[in-house]
Design a protein around this nucleic acid. Structure first.
Lengths: 122, 122
DNA sequence: TATCTATGTTGACAGACGTCAATGTCCCGT
DNA sequence: ACGGGACATTGACGTCTGTCAACATAGATA
């Protein structure tokens, strides 16, 4: 429980710490990273991330997304909020529409953390 | 909804499908992958994976793990069961002890799926 | 056989989570 | 100013999840 480093948000923590298998994670690191994975660990949110990331221009408005699911609009809005709050989606309101964009850097850092040792981090 | 490919377990699905941002995931793919992420999306299980993966020999018995947490032994056993059931940990009973080993291939495939397009899959 | 030790299982409980209907807010066109 | 469309928030509901105490099982050893 050294708690020596400065306060970082979840994405920064993912960016700074070692791959899963290189050395044991501290409890603090785990508690910072787990919410990011939890945000991704839902079928609807996984598809939302995928739809946004693969959409032309790298961004999509809510109206592009709701049609892909058999869920109510508030439910989609809720999932987008979770992804935005965790730092995996950027939010940009333009006029009446709200556009979401995938934080590919956050995804890449998460991927680097999960993968086996030997994978370099930025 | 082509549902044309044969039944695969979660790890195989991760191995076969495209990175998150390359093309939209199908609902079926998302429902196969999400449980893997959900298994990782807990601070205790993240640290368990990290402890096992970074332990000498690449494996660790339960007795090596329980001491790192302020949790009861049944709780650790429960988390290990979740990780094993999802295919992220291999289980090997030798005598009285049970050894767990990280499925680095599954982790690598998960990481490849999460990361941005351009990352090749095996 | 009896006992000890390492690990898993069961049952119960509080809290978190996904979902929806209803409502609210903001912006644009008329 | 008014009305409508795009999106968010609220409150409620059932379900899932993490945790523990108690108990069960299986292997080693005497």
């Amino acid at each position: 429980m050294s708690k020596s480093w400065p306060v970082l948000n979840a994405v920064d923590t993912v960016a700074c710490c070692s791959p899963l298998a290189h050395e044991p994670m501290t409890q603090e690191q785990a508690e910072q990273v787990a919410p990011l994975l939890k945000a991704l660990a839902d079928p609807v949110r996984l598809r939302l991330m995928s739809l946004v990331a693969s959409h032309e221009g790298g961004e999509a408005c809510v109206c592009d997304l709701t049609g892909a699911f058999d869920l109510s609009q508030p439910t989609i809005s809720h999932h987008l909020k979770v992804l935005h709050a965790s730092g995996l989606l950027d939010r940009d309101k333009r006029g009446v529409w709200v556009y979401y964009r995938a934080r590919t850097d956050a995804l890449a850092h998460l991927a680097a953390l999960i993968s086996a040792p030997g994978d370099a981090l930025v």
